[in-house]
């Protein structure tokens, strides 16, 4: 298909509900992708409650809380950017989009500081130091690195998608009458936020 025929077909059926349906179905698959890891988490926490508790003490609740605040706020700016675009305020929408991206980057920056500190102490999967610990602690840190790692990867992908949205908004290919791309990116971003909403208490706040 060439560019203009694409445009033509898009004109013929611009099915917003259909596009969003596709996006939601994709998010369902994402939910279950993380769901598989939550099953592992549930079983191993059930088997090793004490070790999970003591390992969680070593995670920095302050960094976790800051990251929670950052992601929740980025969800707000994401929602606001869509609303602004709907109301035709392109510039405002761009500001909110860029803010969202910056907060995503800040989240990842924090995360890498946190991981870096752990690595510095010899805490990483299969490290000689970690292997001297009990199996509950090995599993806790395994889950911690894998789940926050895959979540971080999703944040990174979200940032990439939003960069494209900034480009599209500047070029005007998404605007107040045609913003389903931005809305779908928003759905993805909010979903990644929801995952963090669960990860935060499950890793940082075990008592």
């Amino acid at each position: 298909m060439t560019e203009e025929t694409l445009h033509k077909t898009a004109e013929v059926h611009r099915d917003y509900t259909g596009s969003k349906m596709g996006m939601w179905l994709f998010l369902f698959t994402e939910m279950l992708l993380f769901g598989g890891m939550f099953i592992l988490y549930a079983v191993y926490r059930f088997k090793h409650p004490e070790e999970f508790h003591t390992s969680a003490q070593d995670l920095d609740t302050t960094i976790g809380a800051i990251n929670t605040l950052i992601l929740l706020t980025s969800s707000l700016t994401m929602a606001l950017s869509i609303l602004a675009l709907q109301k035709g305020k392109k510039r405002l929408s761009l500001v909110f989009q860029v803010l969202t991206i910056l907060m995503g980057a800040a989240f990842l920056g924090n995360k890498s500081l946190e991981w870096g500190a752990k690595f510095h102490h010899g805490m990483y999967p299969n490290s000689a130091y970690l292997l001297t610990k009990s199996s509950g602690e090995i599993l806790f840190y395994g889950l911690y690195f894998v789940m926050t790692g895959i979540h971080g990867l999703h944040v990174l992908i979200g940032i990439g998608v939003l960069l494209f949205m900034v480009l599209f908004t500047m070029r005007g290919s998404i605007d107040s009458t045609n913003f389903v791309k931005l809305e779908n990116s928003g759905l993805y971003w909010h979903f990644v936020d929801i995952v963090w909403v669960y990860l935060f208490p499950l890793f940082y706040l075990i008592t």
Partner: peptide, 15 residues
């Protein structure tokens, strides 16, 4: 070598 399914690290292959 995270150990989720490795019994020597406490993992459970049945999972």
């Amino acid at each position: 070598g995270v150990g989720f399914f490795d019994p020597s690290k406490g993992g459970d292959p049945i999972l």
